[in-house]
Computed example of a mutant assay.
Amino acid sequence: MDFGLSEEQQMIVDTTRAFVERELYPHEAEVERTGHLRMELVREIQAKAIEAGLYAANMPEDVGGAGLDTQTWLLYEKELGRANYALHWTCVARPSNILLAGTPEQRERYLFPCIRGEKWDCLAMTEPGAGSDLRGMKASAKADGDDFILNGTKHFISHADIADFAIVFMATGEEQTPRGPKKRITAFFVDKGTPGFDLRDGYRNVSHRGYTNAVLEFNDCRLPQSAVLGEVHKGFEVANTWLGATRLQVAATCLGRAERALGYAVDYAAEREQFGQKIGKFQGVSFKLADMAMELKAAELLTREAAWKFDQGTVTESDMSMAKLKATEVLAMVADEAIQIHGGMGLMDDLPLERIWRDARVERIWEGTSEIQRHIISREMLRARGA
């Protein structure tokens, strides 16, 4: 594995960082203070991102994306991750890769409009009673002739308020396994405005202001067979095939924010004077900087190794879980220590540190909690011993 960046990769990093600093940073204060991302601002930045070739860059080249390999894609995600989450996710959208699993007709209706910036998607798995335990979902879809009838509730559904459609996972039966019965899951496309599909405001979140969540309710929502994504009862297979790298995406965006926070801490330690010298000269500060840099490097190496393995076809669940776990926990540590180095100023909203600190909290919960990641890592180790 070569840790150096190719000329193309360096160009993507430089282009993305320049875009983030020029087009996203100036609007962070507005989004943070209002908790709202204006649609006119979204459209303005979206047009610039499309012109710069940064929009939907996660998609393959043959469908209109940038065709980046996983390593390069995560370098791009890391740079975007430096900014307010709502700004970079909404204005420089990366449609869900699961859309690639659609039929040619579904691609025309859902995938390509998302790539062109005409539509947004949202993914609906989580339920009030089933978070990490997706097999415990109660929302269901029952066959009725050639149609399916959907009933149930999903919550914590990110940016569903602006999404034109949802990709919804529903229980469609049970199967017997050596460990007892397990739900069969099917994925469906559900257009906003479909009778029986209602959306209401979600919860106010301490992390990622401007990036909304919603509650999705299904009451005898009738869908045709053509709304199934993939095969009936094969929703987990579709998810596992197309959503595998989302943990690495989380890791990469966390690295970007952690690097930004560390930069503020180093600059402050080199400039701030107390007791007649720069505070970076005190071991209490200098050792913090050393630990922050070391842990950040470890998280980046884990993430880049997993990305490299992903492209080689050798990545394991444990590789991706280690990267996600380490990067999210390092972000929390770096953000906290950066504030400590700044003292009281670190908690003021003149700087982005208090936002990065708040935003870090959700990263250890979504896309699989830290406990779930540790379970995956340890399970892989024990299975190798037959346990």
Rank of each mutant, 00 (worst) to 15 (best):
Arg43Pro: 00
Tyr268Leu: 11
Val13Lys: 13
Met292His: 12
Gly152Asp: 12
Glu108Phe: 05
Arg116Ile: 06
Leu123Ser: 12
His159Ala: 05
Phe169Ala: 13
Ala269Met: 05
Ala56Arg: 03
Ala360Ile: 03
Leu87Tyr: 06
Asn84Gln: 07
Ala160Asp: 05
Ile50Thr: 10
Glu21Ser: 06
Leu87Glu: 02
Ala18Gln: 12
Trp73Asn: 09
Tyr76Leu: 02
Val315Ala: 14
Glu127Leu: 10
Ile98Gln: 11
Glu127Val: 13
Pro104Gln: 05
Met322Phe: 13
Trp120His: 15
Val330Pro: 06
Ala239Val: 14
Asn219Tyr: 08
Tyr268Trp: 14
Thr103Ser: 15
Glu105Lys: 14
Glu61Met: 07
Ala214Tyr: 08
Ala93Ser: 05
Glu118Gly: 10
Gln176His: 06
Phe282Met: 09
Asn84Ala: 02
Gly344Gln: 04
Asn240Thr: 08
Leu75Lys: 06
Gly152Ile: 12
Val20His: 05
Gln340Cys: 09
Gly256Phe: 03
Asp267Asn: 14
Leu302Tyr: 01
Trp73Pro: 00
Phe287Ala: 14
His159Asp: 10
Phe310Cys: 04
Ala227Asp: 13
Met292Asp: 12
Phe165Ser: 14
Leu68Trp: 02
Ile339Asp: 02
Val238Gly: 08
Glu40Asp: 15
Val238Thr: 15
Arg116Leu: 11
Glu61Leu: 10
Glu271Asp: 15
Gly280Cys: 09
Arg364His: 03
Ser96Leu: 12
Lys297Arg: 11
Pro195Ser: 06
Thr316Trp: 01
Ser378Pro: 00
Ala299Val: 06
Gly196Trp: 05
